[in-house]
Design a protein around this nucleic acid. Structure first.
Length: 830
RNA sequence: GGGUCUGUGGUCUAGUGGUUAUGACACCGCCCUUACACGGCGUUGAUCGAGGGUUCAAAUCCCUCCAGACCCA
């Protein structure tokens, strides 16, 4: 008997690494396999890969999600689609600015702008390198040659051009509105960037005096904002105060440049049972204040400036920070005898997601994307898209139901895409660059081809070059865009919008948006908003929303909890004989986890098999190895066993005279393959992988291989044909999950890599397909056959006979009559 | 405080009204059998989060509560 062509004794991480490295060695081979060919006649399948944000280490949960996106990419190639699996890196944003500030211990705004941008660029490039390496290691079959960076001129051009397009359409407006503002970082932020943290705050009761001398108590946590108080309100049904409504009440704090009293009015948002039931409404303590000001038509006061300090409105407290002013206000009220009571309590206060700084609401002139008018339309488009799993669509609907204000998109930061606008002296005209050009208005003049627009009507007034001399001094916009303004163009960008119109026509709506559920309210929502405003179309055909990677106890992984697991440590576990160990802080104590070998293939197999899409998944390296490495070992050994028998010249044509057991396993295999093909088409990774695993580790080795072993040793060509055909097609169908594994097996034994297969394997033996009389009859025997084998093994064991010894007294069931000869030989029945 | 989702042996998981609730890992027991002991076979082990309801029949539908996750106020 010839030696197995699959020479390694077993599947190992070192073997895996060798294959992986060889896989990416030749750029031409790689490109032929995985690059997107826009000329192709095949159906396009464009994936709007979430561009990762490089921040040093890559979260293991995110790597798990990306590996599943790769499974989808590869399975679509297997189904014959022209897949574009882009590799993008999201590099704009406040995070990298923070990193540079931290590294140099110097605030951004103390730098020269150009110098600071250069430092951000250098730093983020280092992080990006590490990420590219991990992406290749885990087998992401991205088109790396077409890598896009969201901070590149190319990408930023698209963001700027889309902005101008939307502005001309009236979907973007400029307005003076209350904005959520981070005074520490000095920038506006959006609703979606606010989070809440518990803090201890003082709730103080302050005595106010009405013009008629009545004294009432008002509770507040923000006494420093009394100077911005526009009205005092009570609930319309609150009889305690009905006699005061319409009267004026004195502000208990000194103010400058405004009236010293306000009117008492009614408003239904007041909670009568909170404190005294009287509320002071300031511009702007919180979102409710904003709403009341708007509803009552009041003119807001500006109490806090852009540096987070009190304005002149605060009289003697002007110039103090918010916190200083608050302490001073309490002191002042106490000395005036107006401080009735102070209670310390825990309160959730809004802070900025990135800087964790308490945010203020400040009146600012900013740019907005209009969104409140178009929610119904977005919903209609959302209904046209297929969600995986369907229930996760609810995250989007919930968020949309909560939207009440437009999206502020301008930011007072630097390492972001610039707002492409110049302002003219008269404040009525603005200048925008031509489509397809990246501009930096803070340091450049308008380029050739720029247009002059009316600032409010958005009408094109003429060419900049012709009007230049009459425009006076021109000032470039210094503000930049919210990073989501860039990110929400990703599907347009990868589908060819602006740059490749002919591709775009075929590629849009983008086939797939895969993402985590935690960014539905930002990335998914903003993308759909853009598709609706710009093109009035659904952004995607499929939206695939995965759960989050959690620690082994089901908690979110975070630096502060100390329960994180580094992706590379899992992928490298077992390489060079080095085992992996992780110290993870559990709820009670720190637990030490160990594993001998995991690697990318086992890791991918685990994620594909262990959790349905959309569910949060627990990441425990010990379990990944225990549950799934054995599967690889098993499949490898089946292939290795097969590899010692000669491969028939023509694997594609089914030979005549197959034995009944050959036809039986082919009927089982075809049923499995049918399930797998449907599952791949439905982006259902779990079902496809489970079906393959069950077949490949169960019925194939335990029953078929045992049955035909003797025939194989006797060089029976039909048995060899059946086994090789099954193994070859199995590897093709399994290649999306374990590409390196199947590549190695298939190219070694069959001289053709499974990763190159671009059509789902045809039925080996159509006569026994699903729904055929013969096939169904054979499959109906499967459980009897397996039970009989099990019983016979059990009986031998009971009798103390080893499995290869002859045994007598075993009856073959009538229904298995056709298998009599092979079963007799298999079990040495007498 | 509100919304959404989730809750099945020790762990993970299948199962959207109908036999005895699926499978994997772990545990325990047996077995070196010419691919594989990083293997094979088998045995234990679940009142399906708790309680109530609808039904001839509930893990599955409804209600209440509890726990977790995500989001919001």
């Amino acid at each position: 008997m010839p030696a197995p062509t699959l020479s390694d004794k077993r599947w190992s991480i070192d073997l895996e690494k060798r294959i992986q490295e060889a896989h990416t060695e030749d750029p031409q081979v790689y490109a032929r396999r995985y690059a997107f060919n826009p000329e192709s006649n095949k159906e396009f399948f464009v994936i709007d890969t979430p561009p990762p944000y490089p921040s040093g280490t890559w979260h293991i949960g995110a790597v798990a999600q990306y590996s599943m996106i790769d499974v989808i990419a590869r399975s679509q190639r297997l189904l014959g689609k022209e897949v574009y699996f882009p590799w993008g890196v999201d590099r704009n944003g406040i995070n990298i600015e923070f990193t540079v500030e931290k590294n140099t211990k110097r605030k951004m705004k103390t730098y020269d702008r150009a110098e600071f941008l250069e430092m951000c660029k250098t730093t983020i490039e280092e992080f990006t390198q590490a990420m590219r390496k991990t992406a290749r290691r885990v087998g992401l079959s991205c088109d790396y040659d077409r890598e896009y960076l969201t901070d590149s001129p190319e990408y930023r051009t698209v963001t700027q051009s889309i902005f101008i397009e939307l502005f001309k359409k009236g979907a973007i407006i400029e307005d003076l509105r209350p904005n959520i503002y981070d005074p520490v970082e000095g920038t506006t932020i959006a609703d979606a960037e606010v989070e809440r943290l518990p803090r201890r705050t003082k709730l103080i009761d302050v005595q106010w005096t009405c013009d008629d001398g009545t004294e009432i108590v008002i509770s507040t946590t923000r006494p420093e904002l009394i100077c911005a108080c526009g009205v005092v309100v009570v609930h319309p049904d609150d009889e305690r105060y009905s006699h005061l409504v319409g009267k004026r009440i004195q502000l208990p704090m000194p103010v400058d440049g405004r009236e010293t009293s306000v009117e008492i009015k009614t408003h239904p948002s007041v909670k009568s049972d909170f404190g005294s039931g009287v509320l002071m409404v300031c511009s702007f303590g919180d979102q409710n204040d904003v709403a009341v000001f708007r509803e009552l038509g009041l003119t807001p006061f500006q109490a806090i400036n852009l540096e987070g300090r009190m304005t002149e409105l605060a009289g003697p407290f002007a110039g103090q920070t918010v916190l200083e002013a608050r302490a001073a206000a309490i002191e002042h009220l106490e000395s005036e005898g107006r401080l009735v009571n102070v209670v310390e309590r825990e309160q959730e206060i809004p802070v900025s997601e990135r800087g964790k700084n308490p945010v203020e609401i400040i009146l600012l002139k900013e740019w907005y994307v209009r969104q409140t008018h178009t929610q119904d339309r977005i919903k209609e488009h959302a209904d046209a898209m297929e969600f995986h799993p369907p229930r996760n669509k609810q995250f989007l609907i919930d968020w949309m139901d909560n939207i009440s204000i437009d999206w502020p998109i301008s930011r007072r930061r630097w390492y972001h895409t610039e707002i492409p606008i110049w302002y003219c002296d008269d404040e009525d005209k603005i200048i925008v660059p031509p489509t397809g050009m990246y501009v930096q208005p803070w340091c450049e003049s308008p380029p050739e081809g720029s247009q002059v627009l009316d600032r409010s009507s958005r009408e094109v007034l003429g060419d900049f070059s012709e009007m230049e001399k009459d425009l006076g001094t021109i000032v470039g916009e210094e503000k930049v865009f919210d990073t989501w303004m860039d990110s929400s163009n990703s599907n347009l960008f990868v589908s060819g919008y602006l740059n490749h119109p002919d591709v775009f026509e075929k590629a849009f709506p983008t086939a797939l948006r895969p993402q985590g559920k935690e960014i539905v309210r930002t990335w998914l929502y903003y993308t759909l908003l853009k598709s609706t405003l710009l093109l009035d179309q659904p952004g995607f055909k499929h939206v695939w929303i995965d759960g989050l990677g959690m620690d082994p106890w089901g908690r979110k992984m975070s630096k502060s909890l100390g329960n994180g697991i580094d992706a590379d440590s899992v992928l490298e576990c077992g390489a060079g004989g080095r085992t992996g160990s992780w110290k993870v802080k559990g709820p009670d104590k720190t637990v030490s986890l160990r594993a001998n070998k995991i690697g990318s293939e086992c890791f991918r197999l685990w994620k594909a098999c262990d959790a349905q899409v959309g569910d949060d998944f627990h990441i425990n390296p010990e379990e990944i190895e225990k549950k799934y490495f054995g599967v690889l070992t098993k499949l490898f050994n089946v292939a290795r066993f097969a590899s010692q028998f000669e491969v028939p010249d023509d694997l594609d044509t089914c030979p005549d005279g197959l034995a009944v057991e050959d036809e039986w396993i082919l009927s089982e295999f075809q049923a499995t393959m049918e399930t797998v093909q449907k599952a791949w088409a439905n982006l259902d990774i779990y079902t496809a992988t489970q079906a393959l695993k069950t077949f490949g580790t169960g019925v194939l080795p335990s029953h078929y291989l045992e049955m035909v072993k003797s025939r194989l040793y006797d060089e029976d060509t039909n048995a060899a044909w059946t086994l090789h055909r099954v193994v070859r097609d199995f590897m093709s169908a399994f290649t999306p999950v374990c590409p390196f594994f199947t590549h190695h097996v298939s190219s070694t034994i069959y001289d053709a890599s499974a990763v190159d297969v671009d059509a789902f394997p045809q039925q080996a033996h159509p006569e026994v397909a699903m729904g055929t009389e013969k096939g169904d009859a054979l499959r109906a025997l499967s459980s009897t056959l397996q039970t009989f084998n099990g019983d016979t093994w059990g009986y031998k064991k009971e009798q103390g006979i080893s499995l290869n010894q002859p045994v007598s007294g075993v009856e073959i069931p009538k229904s298995l009559e056709a298998f009599t000869a092979i079963l007799t030989r298999m079990h040495s029945l007498e």
